[in-house]
Amino acid sequence: MPHKFNAGRREKLPKQKHRVTNWAEYNESLRRRCDLTGWISDDALALWAAPPRTTPGGQPVYSDLAIELCLTLGMVFKQPLRQTQGLMRSIAELLGVEIAVPDFSTLSRRGNGLSVSAKATSKNVKPAQLVVDSTGLKIFGEGEWLEKKHKTKRKRCSWRKLHLGLDLVSGQIVCSDLTTEDIGDPTALPGLLDQIDGPVDLFLADGAYDGEPTCAVLTERFGSAIDVTIPPPKNAVLSSGAAQNPSIRDRHIADIRARGRMAWQKASGYNQRSRGETLMGRWKTVIGPKLKAHSFENQKTEARIGVRILNRMTELGRPNFERTA
């Protein structure tokens, strides 16, 4: 993304123009994103009932897949749990299948701690090029209006922090986490990296991840050959051993001093980090800017399902661009 420092005095660059080369396929994929047959398969209906329980206790009626499917449809069509129950009941009638539909209280109870795999199965054999970013999501509760209007201290935290890792090669979200607002980005990074099985040869992130601990974690996980591109602040200084053994951060600082920040961004490929910000905008447009669940565990389940939804939509089709100007 362009660096906004001294934006009033820097040279204005003309905006690039692109066109989509596979518009017919991409246009059809956009239609399929709200096609019910794209979300409900025969396999899902066949696995609707829970498997027989072999341990002491009550027998569950619905499988985890059934609960996940209902919660997914509620998020896709932005419906509360009661309306989700009615939506699934009408879909079962239209499909002509005799299945029991879980009620809203069952969806809420089973959503607590539901095992949902946040990452999709990638068919790409190339090393991942990882872009990591975070954003805030509004949660239910008394928030800024109560504090501003009535001068009353809010009773609960009004935000959660969503951390996402995007693979530039496949376009899939390969790692995600939902934390409280006091968790810093570098603190959440090791948990994100634990979700990645394959190799990573490029890591892009904003200045919040700047520091030697981040580089140390990345080189320990993926080897010294990984290309770590994190912009240091304008007042960054070289380390004590930069002359004999410069670190990745030292090389970035020296390159910015020699060539300028804009030239460094273009040469290092840091501008591709804008796709991470595009992902955050896509989340807040498709999934929404707030979480519906009230408990933290249900909110984490909701975030994992949101990741699966965006990955499923990406699988339906992606646009191919070519530059025209």
Rank of each mutant, 00 (worst) to 15 (best):
P2G: 10
H3N: 10
H3R: 08
K4W: 06
N6K: 10
N6D: 11
G8Y: 07
R10Q: 14
E11F: 11
H18W: 15
H18S: 13
E25R: 11
R32M: 13
C34P: 05
C34M: 14
I40E: 09
S41R: 09
A44T: 12
L45S: 07
W48G: 08
P52Y: 08
G57V: 06
G58M: 13
Q59C: 14
Q59G: 14
S63G: 02
D64Y: 04
L65N: 10
A66T: 08
C70G: 03
L73D: 01
V76G: 05
F77C: 11
K78S: 13
K78D: 15
P80E: 07
R82E: 12
T84P: 04
Q85P: 03
G86Q: 04
G86T: 01
M88R: 07
I91S: 05
I91V: 12
A92H: 10
E93H: 01
G96Q: 03
V97T: 07
F104M: 06
T106R: 00
L107E: 03
R110G: 05
S117C: 12
K119L: 07
T121Y: 08
K123I: 09
V125D: 06
K126W: 00
Q129Y: 06
S134T: 07
S134D: 02
L137F: 09
K138S: 12
I139E: 03
F140M: 11
G141D: 09
G141E: 10
E147R: 12
K151Q: 07
R160S: 03
R160Q: 07
R160E: 07
K161E: 07
G165V: 06
I173P: 00
V174R: 05
D177V: 02
D177C: 01
L178I: 09
T179N: 10
T180K: 00
A188Q: 14
L189C: 11
D194W: 07
L202K: 03
L204T: 02
A205T: 01
D206H: 05
G207H: 11
E212T: 14
C215K: 06
L218A: 11
A225K: 10
V228Q: 02
T229Y: 11
P231T: 00
P233R: 13
V237W: 05
R249F: 02
I253S: 03
I256L: 08
I256G: 02
R257H: 08
M262P: 07
A263Y: 04
W264R: 02
K266D: 09
S268Q: 06
G269W: 09
G276C: 00
K284R: 06
V286P: 03
G288P: 07
G288C: 10
L291M: 08
N298I: 13
K300N: 04
T301A: 10
V307Q: 00
V307A: 00
E315W: 08
G317E: 00
P319W: 03
N320L: 10
